[in-house]
Every structure is written in structure tokens, then in C-alpha cells.
Design a protein around this nucleic acid. Structure first.
Lengths: 230, 230
DNA sequence: TAGTGGTCTAGACCACTCA
DNA sequence: GAGTGGTCTAGACCACTAT
């Protein structure tokens, strides 16, 4: 292909920015000028600049032109993986065990999150994720039974709750928080660590449309880390 | 505008996928067919589908066509913010204090990370980040002085080390890990918490081109959380 | 080999926003 | 008001890959 690709343009511009050829906050040439320089259509330059804008490298404004970002933001993307995949990625054999399963009235903090009435019951599950039969993570989860009625029929002996939910309600939204907590007595017991150990906690709530599906706390065993590139 | 926008197409297709009109893994119509259905150019459909592919909703293959993703991945994007911004976002007043600053031989774990010779010195800094004069986070950092020579002249009385580095080396790459640790004696002391408290640790290393810039451990005080949308 | 997505072009009009 | 990016079109050729 003779034509100049948007990838090459993006890379070239990125190098100029990184090398300091353009200062932070400085206006860079407009699309038409760059198109002329690269000898390509404006559309192609547009695509390259749009990519840089999505990455937070430049800021674009109509009439205002395109500027190098003043305070480049650093973003880390974490995939929220299925625990099974995390375990298998380490080369270990994955297994999970439902420790507790009952239908009961959730505490207020949960019933508000799941948008349940004060007297409505929800499904409560505790599960232990094992890597080579050693505790890897402990999960405490509430499910809104109205959102996924068929869950009553599922045993979860071959598939984890999370994987089942992903398949049943594949494109839900949600929010998530990461934090550090000291293991209380129960969790220390489940994960076979001493009480007070620092554990990595992922707290996640998901919903689809207006209907809340599940909220869970996932306690990873000691030493667990989330990695990412910047 | 009469023309159908790529955003509307993206939304429409997303609704069909979410509603289950197309199964997981199912082949969806090709670009030309969709263009005809929406009465627009193929380019426009292409842009909508490309967006869905970037979001991990569909998978596209030449000749293979476009399919709904089998196992939709969940991604969480975290901005790695400047601590000052984190503090100010809570409404508190930010201040930081350099607790320690010296040039010395780093431990091997650091000198390998920074690609330093065994006998080379590096700049070591400890800093405390305060929110309304209460400890918010404690930072232990090594800087490769060869990568940023002017750092010797900087006092860091008005600007934090991180902000200074971002301005000096704006578009560096890096990696980062999140984990949970029990506070050791020194850190507990610095953050004014009891020893053994669970702390959220961000461990980050950045470089530019081939040259390593800095590696740091940032211990957030108890109760700190990272939030994100899924 | 044939079918699909990937990309580029040249031109057009629009929408926003700065001065 | 004028300059910039935002987007759409219609057409073309290419690159990959499933069959």
C-alpha cells in the first residue's frame, strides 16, 4: 500500500510530542496542514488525532485546534477477570466450592444496593476459590433473585456463580472498588491465614438496565497483586 | 443532520446484543447488509462496529465476519491520579512533606529495576502526603538521577516529586501493581496507624524510551479505596 | 478462492466555539 | 463571523482467512 496509514501518522506525532518538539499545552498544526505534510487525506489525519485524543495525549476543540495535553493523565486498565482464569494463568488447577447458600433477608446496606424492599429476601452465597486445593480467594455474594430467576435451579457444581451470571446477563454495567482490609476471624479461617492479615478486597456491584443483579466482596489471599501497564 | 450517525448505529446494535436478539458467539450481519438496513455508507457502520470491537463487545475477523463476544471481558479503567488531586477531591487541603532525601546505593531489587550498575548511587526520597494535616499516604521513591539530571536543583517545597516528574518527562511508560500489605513499624509510624493495619499499596515503575526514571511504593492510609466503573 | 473487514480518498456539509 | 474539528458519502483497493 502506498497510502500513508493512520497508524504511522499517530506514531510520528506521538514521537514529536514525546521528544518535546511540541511543548505541553502547545497548539499543533491543524488537520489540513498535517494532511498536506503527510500527503494524505484529512480523514486519515483525523483518525490518527482522534486516537491520540482517546489516549489522553492531546485535547481537541473545534475552532480551538489540537493541543498537547497539559497534565497527561495516567490510566491503568485492569481486566476484571474470572477467578478461574486468574488461577489457571498461574499454572494451578482451579476448583471452587460453595460454602454457604441460603435465601435470607440481607442487611440494609445490601438491600439498598440491590434496590430491594425492606422485607424482601435475596440469595446469599459464600464460595471459596481454590488454586491447587489451596485457598485463593473467598467470595461473599448477594444475588437479586428477581433479576435472574433461573438461578434457583443451578447447582454451581461445574461453573462458578460469576461465570454463570456472565453468561446469563452478559453485558451488564457495574462499579467496582479495590481496597485493603485486615482479615476478620471468619475470613482468616476460610483462607487459612492468621487473623489481621492484609487482604486485597474487590467490591463489585452489577446491574442490567434498571435492575440490580448482584453485589459481592471478593477477598484475595495474602500476597495477591493486580498488575497493569500504564 | 439527516444522515445516520455511527453513535446511533452503535447504540442500536448494542441494544440488540444486550437484549439477546443475537446470541453469544452468534454471527451478525456484515457491514454491507447493515449499511443497507440503516441506509448509510458502509464506512459509518464500520466505525460503529469498530467501536464495539474496541469495547470488547464483538469480535471481528476478515472473512469470518463479526460475532458477539463469547465471554465478554470486564475492564476497569483506573486513572492513576496525582495524590494532590485525590486529596483535593475529598475537599481537604493538600500538603506534602519531604521526610528524607539522600543519594545512596539502592538495594539490588531497585538497582535492577532502574537498570543501574551495582555501585551506582540513586536518589532516595520519602514523602508524606497530608490531607488537612492528617497523613493520607506515604511514599518511598527511588529516582534514576541520570534520567532526570535537573532533579538535584529542585527543592520540592511547592510541587510534589511526582508532579515534577510528570512535567519533566510527560509521556513515560510504566507498570503498576496494586496490593494489600500489613503496615510495618516505620510505615505505621509515618501514617499514624497501628502496626499491622491493612494498607493499600501502589507499586509503580516508569521509564521513557530505554531509560528508567523512577520506582516507588505508595502506601495509602487505612480505609482508602480506588473506585471505578465497569 | 471468495468473502469479509480494514483502510484510504476526495469532497462535502455541519457544529461548535473562539475572538 | 470565521476557523477548526466532527462526521458522512460513495467508491475503491487491499489484506486476511475460512472454507
Amino acid at each position: 500500500m502506498n497510502a500513508i496509514s493512520h497508524k504511522i501518522i499517530r506514531e510520528t506525532l506521538l514521537e514529536r510530542i514525546q521528544s518535546g518538539e511540541w511543548e505541553l499545552g502547545e497548539l499543533i498544526p491543524n488537520e489540513e496542514e498535517l494532511a498536506e505534510e503527510f500527503g494524505c487525506a484529512r480523514t486519515t489525519v483525523n483518525r490518527a488525532l482522534r486516537a491520540l485524543a482517546e489516549e489522553g495525549i492531546v485535547i481537541r476543540k473545534r475552532k480551538g485546534g489540537t493541543r498537547v495535553c497539559e497534565l497527561p493523565k495516567r490510566e491503568a486498565k485492569f481486566e476484571i477477570p474470572i477467578v478461574r482464569q486468574q488461577v489457571e494463568a498461574t499454572g494451578a488447577v482451579y476448583r471452587h466450592k460453595i460454602v454457604c447458600r441460603e435465601s435470607k433477608k440481607p442487611p440494609i446496606s445490601v438491600s439498598t444496593r440491590l434496590h430491594l424492599g425492606a422485607d424482601e429476601k435475596a440469595l446469599y452465597l459464600e464460595a471459596l476459590h481454590l488454586a491447587d486445593e489451596r485457598p485463593f480467594a473467598f467470595e461473599m455474594r448477594w444475588v437479586n433473585p428477581a433479576a435472574v430467576p433461573h438461578i434457583e435451579e443451578e447447582k454451581f457444581d461445574t461453573i462458578s456463580v460469576n461465570e454463570w451470571l456472565i453468561k446469563s446477563v452478559p453485558f451488564s454495567s457495574g462499579d467496582v472498588s479495590f481496597s485493603a482490609v485486615n482479615a476478620d476471624c471468619d475470613i482468616a479461617d476460610a483462607l487459612d491465614v492468621t487473623e489481621g492479615s492484609a487482604l486485597f478486597l474487590v467490591d463489585r456491584t452489577t446491574w442490567y438496565d434498571q435492575s440490580f443483579i448482584t453485589t459481592l466482596k471478593l477477598y484475595y489471599n495474602q500476597g495477591f497483586k493486580f498488575y497493569s501497564k500504564l
